[in-house]
Amino acid sequence: MYLAAEAWPDLESYFESESLAIVPLGSTEQHGPHLPEGTDHLIAEGFARETASRTGYLCTPTINVGVSPHHRQFPGTMWVDPPVFRDYVESFSRNLAYHGIDRIVYVNAHGGNVQHLREVGRRLHEDEVAFAVEWMWDESIPELVDDVFEQNGPHGGPKETALIQYLESDLVHEDRLEDARDGGVPDIEAAETTKFGARTFYDAVDNSDNGVFGDQTDATAEKGERLFEAATDQLVQLCDWLDGQDIEELLPEPRV
């Protein structure tokens, strides 16, 4: 069920019988010369909408601008400051709680959002408003990702390329895959910007001239479909598990 497509009487029926919501989040930021700036939020929305379709759980509209100042040197990158992002997501989540939602899955596809979503989840948990967890697709199937790609790349690499080839093939510049590979670096270690245990970089461009990592030519839509199916299965299982928990067991433990 997609919230924005439903009329209020049908949503009222959902809130009377269900208490879980799926919230897709991502970013609008550079993903190299070959992928659209909406890569992260398109991936998050793909997983969230498919999971909602398979399970009947409620999927909200996508939060498509996140914490991305580390990509700001590349034209078109959008971002909000971390406190603004946290407050917005928390307010968004409290809105859901007002309607009766007490468990939330943040389907997140942008690494820059992770720590902030966990902080929002902690706030909601501490206030006994809702139990919210952050989920990232590649962290749910790490062995498969490593098996499919020799150099999977942490950003704009073959794993994200393959997913967009599968989900939104018209948005991939297939003729730029070699340029993406040759103009970037294999991984962060190859950038040699960690010195004596300290990270000496702040922005993506400090590590990679074109903002991406890995071998993008190793991506195919078929590989993307394989990743999508495997991770969607993990997300379905997470939602079913969370839906089956007693909310009292999810609330904070009493003081010792």
Rank of each mutant, 00 (worst) to 15 (best):
A4N: 10
A5D: 15
F15G: 08
E16S: 14
S17R: 15
A21E: 02
I22G: 05
T28D: 00
G32Q: 00
P36S: 11
E37G: 09
A44S: 12
G46W: 02
E50K: 04
T51E: 01
L58F: 02
N64R: 15
H70V: 00
F74Q: 00
F74D: 00
P75D: 07
G76I: 05
G76K: 04
P83G: 11
P83H: 12
V84H: 13
E90P: 03
L96A: 06
A97P: 04
V105Y: 00
Y106Q: 05
V107P: 06
H116I: 08
A130Q: 10
V133G: 01
W135M: 14
E139V: 09
S140Q: 08
I141R: 05
L144Q: 12
D147R: 13
Q151F: 08
P154F: 03
H155R: 08
G157V: 03
I164K: 03
I164D: 04
E168S: 14
S169H: 14
L177V: 09
E178D: 12
A190W: 10
T200M: 15
D203V: 06
V205S: 12
D209I: 03
T220P: 08
K223H: 10
G224S: 07
E225S: 05
R226D: 10
R226P: 03
T232H: 07
E248P: 02
E253Y: 02
P254R: 13
V256E: 13
